[in-house]
Amino acid sequence: MRKLISLILLVIIAGGIVLSLKEIPFGISKIKIGDYYIKKGIEETGATNIVTSVVVSYRGFDTLGEITILFTAAIGLSAVLGTYRKRKAGEKVEPPSFIVKTGCRFLFPILLLVGAYIFIHGHLTPGGGFQGGAIIASAFLLMYLGCEGKRINENTSIVVEVLGALTFIVLGIIGLTIGKDFLFNFLPKGEPNTLLSAGIIPVIYIAIGFKVGSELAGIIDHLIEKNQ
């Protein structure tokens, strides 16, 4: 009965959304802000990857908010798990097999490298701080799976996290103090398509990469190390 009702309700809602979607033209460049970004993005921000220029520059404030959400979630998780830690006695974790162990050890540095590559080149190629950070975090996930007993240093991860976020905010405030707006791109934009271009965008993306990486790794750490 309950399922049926839910189904009916969802059908109605979906119908409504479809009706609304009908009005939206797909594939036609009617999206006016999007058009502007594509046309003027590189010129205004210096980032070749338009997505990055939108994420970090045009809508950089959203990105600041998003890393805050992530931060909030991580802190909240650790706050809840930190107080709600029930120890199950005698729970044994099976040691990983040799293949897993070797594979993980082999992949760990490579993943770190890939992650770093992605966020450093965020303004040039697809990807950026979030993706790079996630890849780094998955490297740590592998480390937890493959290497028994190893874990990240909590203090280090927190310092990295905080510094990453602070870099973002400080860069924003510098923009403010030099008389322009918050998050103003005050560094020289440089030549597009080179690593040292797009002003503060790569700096922010690197900071985000570190922050996201350490944060997600911290979350994994909290989940796995519940029985400490």
Partner: peptide, 11 residues
């Protein structure tokens, strides 16, 4: 406006 972009471009 944030980042020096006038609305509706930026936030």
């Amino acid at each position: 406006s944030i980042g020096g972009f006038l609305p509706p471009l930026g936030i």
